[in-house]
Write a protein that binds this DNA or RNA. Sequence first.
DNA 1: TTAATAGTTCCATAATTCCGAACTAATGAA
DNA 2: TTCATTAGTTCGGAATTATGGAACTATTAA
Lengths: 126, 126
Amino acid sequence: MELLSDAVKCGMISSMRTPYHPPIEDVTVEGILHAFSDPVRIEIYADLATAECAKNCSTFLTIQKRLLPKSTLSQHFRILREAGLIRSERKGVELINSTRCAELKERFGPMILAIIEAYAQQQKAV
Amino acid sequence: MELLSDAVKCGMISSMRTPYHPPIEDVTVEGILHAFSDPVRIEIYADLATAECAKNCSTFLTIQKRLLPKSTLSQHFRILREAGLIRSERKGVELINSTRCAELKERFGPMILAIIEAYAQQQKAV
DNA sequence: TTAATAGTTCCATAATTCCGAACTAATGAA
DNA sequence: TTCATTAGTTCGGAATTATGGAACTATTAA
């Protein structure tokens, strides 16, 4: 029996198997800035951007000294993903996340690096 | 008779005479990105950043081909101001607005320029 | 004074966000 | 095969934030 809808099959929405990632040409500056306007999300992206290797979502259940409910964390990852900032790939039972930094740099030039550096600078001062 | 409250006098909140502007060291990356995450606000800032001279609020009552209620526009200006992005000074009956670009560049390096350039690039393509 | 203009504040409605509970998907063990 | 476990998503109500019309305030000019 076929379980996936047509919309899923043609990639308009995500299945649980593979979440939806917008093509880079659909990614907008406002969408990126909205995603980064939340302290949890910018911290997640900054961490992924400087991490040695990709990380799963649950890595971030404690972030900035507080424990997040996993439904909330799931939403944050969805927003980062739909803003075009990260890629989430299933590996067994977990999703491993990495930034789409090459594509993003190609499309938005130095913007994202400048944001993350300003953010890192600010966090250092705290 | 004294009309201004203590809170106004010590600069914690704005009077109608002079709106409140946070000191540059209280300005945050997240606050700036939140302010920019709205299409109206980033457009206002981008316009002010490239304008020959400072502009009053009502200049932006029509923006991106739609007419904004002035209460909404007033909120957008307040958010830009409280994010530390713009300065609004009373000149007679109107407020004239300009960016705080020198201070911002000093504190956040190339971030804001990179954002506005990526935004301008994107708008050109539309 | 009064009128006109520029912006702000108030408040009700609309839209978003948060988070606990229930759910689904993948894996490994019995 | 089940069954249990783990990782993450979805649902739905509560809390927060945004929108915009109406009333208001401040400034200037007549």
